[in-house]
């Protein structure tokens, strides 16, 4: 795939807009919101992350990554016109059809907005098929907020409710959004749980404290959905490292309901 555009989201997070080099592949490639890919920089290796753009917008594929290890650092050094590899799409996806006709709450923290964004865009492109839509997004600081333009766009829309928050101490003098940790902002916002689905993604600590808030608000455990990450290599259910008990995150996940997660051995 060719890197068509490089967007610097935060000092350590980058988004690529990608296009297939082979038009045939571009035509035949399709995926569902929530699936992931194995991206490669040849000579450095492969790295796993979700496809961040919506399947309703196939002109480009987008992916966002935080510079952490060998491959993400190499990705961050690439420029427009460079080539990367993509294997995928792999894994399961968000149950968008089952979400139709319901209220949808999206909750994300930090880079965790990337996997949620694909389903947000997907839902927004089919806006009339869903009821109330709420987006709650938080990051450590204002500088750490990703997709700033999108956030602005969402906040300007009248048909959805978007709340952006930063952790206490992460605000700037001119910050106009909320200040507080994601779980408490969720509690304060109290999105209605009746006929609702919640999609949550963020750092483990955020997920841990948000789940109880959701149950307190009356969400059914089957309606609380998250997407997990684990170290992966093959994406094909073979290499043996991403399993949590019987479950291969790369095949049976990455999307799990809270009900499913409670049944798994607590090893993630």
């Amino acid at each position: 795939m060719e890197v068509k555009e490089v967007i610097t989201e935060t000092p350590d997070t980058t988004t690529f807009r990608l296009q297939f080099k082979d038009p045939e592949v571009a035509k035949s490639f399709n995926f569902k919101a929530g699936q992931f890919g194995e991206y490669s920089v040849f000579g450095e290796g492969e790295c796993t992350f979700c496809i961040a753009s919506s399947p309703t917008r196939m002109e480009y594929l987008e992916c966002s990554f935080k510079k952490y290890g060998k491959v993400t650092s190499a990705l961050a050094r690439l420029n427009v016109g460079d080539t990367i590899g993509l294997r995928g799409p792999y894994g399961n996806y968000f149950p968008i059809d089952e979400m139709k006709g319901k209220n949808v709450v999206f909750i994300a923290g930090g880079i965790g907005l990337a996997p949620v964004r694909c389903i947000i865009d997907n839902v927004l492109d089919l806006r009339d098929q869903f009821k109330d839509i709420t987006i709650i997004y938080g990051a450590r600081s204002v500088a750490d907020l990703v997709y700033k333009n999108l956030l602005k766009e969402w906040q300007e829309r009248k048909d959805i409710k978007t709340i952006v928050t930063v952790d206490p101490g992460g605000e700037t003098p001119d910050w106009k959004g909320e200040i507080g940790f994601v779980p408490s902002i969720v509690e304060k916002t109290a999105p209605k749980s009746d006929n609702s689905v919640a999609i949550i993604c963020g750092p483990p600590i955020m997920i841990k404290y948000t789940f109880p808030v959701m149950t307190k608000l009356g969400f059914r455990e089957d309606d609380i959905i998250t997407t997990l990450e684990n170290r992966m290599k093959c994406g094909l259910g073979k290499c043996g490292r991403c399993n949590i008990g019987n479950v291969y995150v790369c095949k049976d996940g990455p999307v799990f309901t809270y009900t499913q997660m409670k049944e798994l051995p607590q090893e993630f």
């Binding site: 490669s40 000579g43 450095e44 290796g45 290599k233 093959c234 073979k238 290499c239 043996g240």
Partner: peptide, 10 residues
Amino acid sequence: CHCFDIVDED
């Protein structure tokens, strides 16, 4: 035992 790693080598 069949677990494996995938790495690039220039």
